[in-house]
């Protein structure tokens, strides 16, 4: 399993992290799985085609915590129903912390999704890493990220910030 994402989307995520500093930003990654003929399931490539900004709905402590309102997720799941797109993961920033998942991240993660974490230092976006929760929920594992040249990715939803 690996994640493919266009550079424009990476830049959108980096910009989001810089804008919300010193609070955490968060968003939903929408994409599709590419099943290559003859490939084993482990070689499935997940392509991100949209990085949608979501407001951090955590009350307080937004410097080190984020929550995405489940109703937002429900609405997007409904929106994508019947299409070949689905929620493939989430992103959030770690202001002045490394781009590594915390124990809190692990406890609240779901398997089968990519979790992009952006480190933002003093307002400047730095490293971006992607992680997947193991099936037994015991650990996060780094996953390869293929940063693709920018083409025409969909832009973030301007209705949310």
């Amino acid at each position: 399993m690996s994640l493919r994402i266009h550079r424009d989307l990476i830049e959108q995520i980096r910009a989001h992290g810089a804008e919300t500093y010193d609070e955490e930003c968060c968003g939903i990654l929408i994409g599709r799985e590419d099943h290559m003929a003859g490939q084993v399931p482990d070689d499935i490539l997940v392509s991100v085609i949209e990085a949608r900004r979501i407001a951090n709905s955590k009350e307080g402590e937004r410097q080190r915590r984020f929550i995405i309102d489940p109703l937002e997720i429900l609405a997007i799941e409904d929106e994508l129903e019947g299409s070949d797109r689905r929620i493939v993961g989430y992103y959030h920033s770690h202001p002045d912390h490394p781009a590594k998942p915390s124990e809190f991240d692990r406890q609240h993660a779901w398997p089968g999704l990519s979790y992009l974490i952006l480190a933002v230092e003093k307002g400047e976006p730095k490293a971006l890493t992607s992680w997947r929760l193991s099936e037994d929920r015991t650990e996060f594992r780094l996953e390869p990220v293929h940063a693709m040249p920018a083409t025409k990715p969909r832009t973030a939803d301007p209705r949310t910030s």
Binding site: E24, R64, R65, I73, H94, P101, S102, F104
Partner: peptide
């Protein structure tokens, strides 16, 4: 409907 709350954040 089962809906996950997606939450996380930097280390304590």
């Amino acid at each position: 409907v089962i809906v996950p709350s997606i939450a996380g954040g930097a280390a304590d």
